[in-house]
């Protein structure tokens, strides 16, 4: 059960705290629907091209590092767990545990970004950044391989942007919780961030096999 704690202020437009909380949750879910459609457009584009160019996409995807991708998948999955723990302790009003697991989540998210950065750097060294300097062997595959890497950077880039936003939000929350700011007195801010974070995680769960594990 939710432990008794200082209740959030009820904004003027709401009747009571229950209505306010429910509204925030419904709002977050609706926002996540728009996010799904946002990524959905990219996934649709990717799938159409992959079906049309299975062979070349397979060739191109061999330049991605499956170990690094797998490692990052584990990192994000773990961060989902720590996020769930944060929400759990937040609902119980246990501030210390909440802070601890929030910090672990941030650390994991940063780990993900660092590894992603190494991967991007590697692509840059290999000349796999789409544009005038794009190099790919064999040359006949170059055009389609460039399409693959265009989509790779668009999709993972947009995902990474979401991770960065997540890190920023969690950092702000950490500070607010640390200074016992009244706006984070109940669990709703953490709950909403948790929903967002699980979404970011799920997107990666789709990205990893789609990009890194293409069957021949």
């Amino acid at each position: 059960m939710v432990q008794e704690q200082a209740q959030q202020k009820v904004s003027i437009q709401f009747e009571d705290i229950a209505q306010q909380n429910e509204s925030y949750i419904v709002g977050m879910w609706t926002f996540l629907v728009t996010e799904i459609m946002f990524f959905g457009g990219l996934f649709a584009t990717y799938l159409v091209y992959r079906v049309a160019n299975q062979q070349t996409f397979w060739e191109a995807h061999r330049h991605l590092s499956i170990p690094l991708g797998f490692f990052n998948t584990c990192v994000l999955l773990t961060s989902s767990l720590t996020m769930a723990l944060t929400v759990h302790y937040s609902q119980r009003g246990l501030r210390k545990q909440q802070l601890l697991w929030l910090l672990v989540t941030i650390a994991l998210a940063c780990t993900f970004l660092v590894v992603k950065g190494f991967e991007y750097h590697h692509k840059f060294v290999e000349g796999l950044i789409p544009g005038a300097n794009f190099r790919f062997e064999p040359a006949e595959h170059m055009r389609v391989a460039q399409l693959f890497f265009s989509l790779y950077f668009a999709m993972t880039g947009l995902h990474a942007l979401h991770v960065v936003i997540g890190v920023l939000v969690m950092t702000i929350l950490t500070v607010l919780i640390a200074i016992k700011h009244p706006s984070v007195q109940d669990f709703i801010p953490i709950e909403l961030t948790g929903l967002y974070w699980h979404f970011v995680d799920i997107v990666w769960i789709f990205l990893f096999p789609l990009l890194y594990l293409i069957p021949r």
Binding site: T45, V48, P130, Q146, L147, S150
Partner: peptide
């Protein structure tokens, strides 16, 4: 100049 929809860059304008 990423190629996503321009056929000259590998893309499909119909998509």
């Amino acid at each position: 100049r990423l190629g996503i929809f321009d056929p000259a860059l590998g893309g499909d304008p119909i998509l």
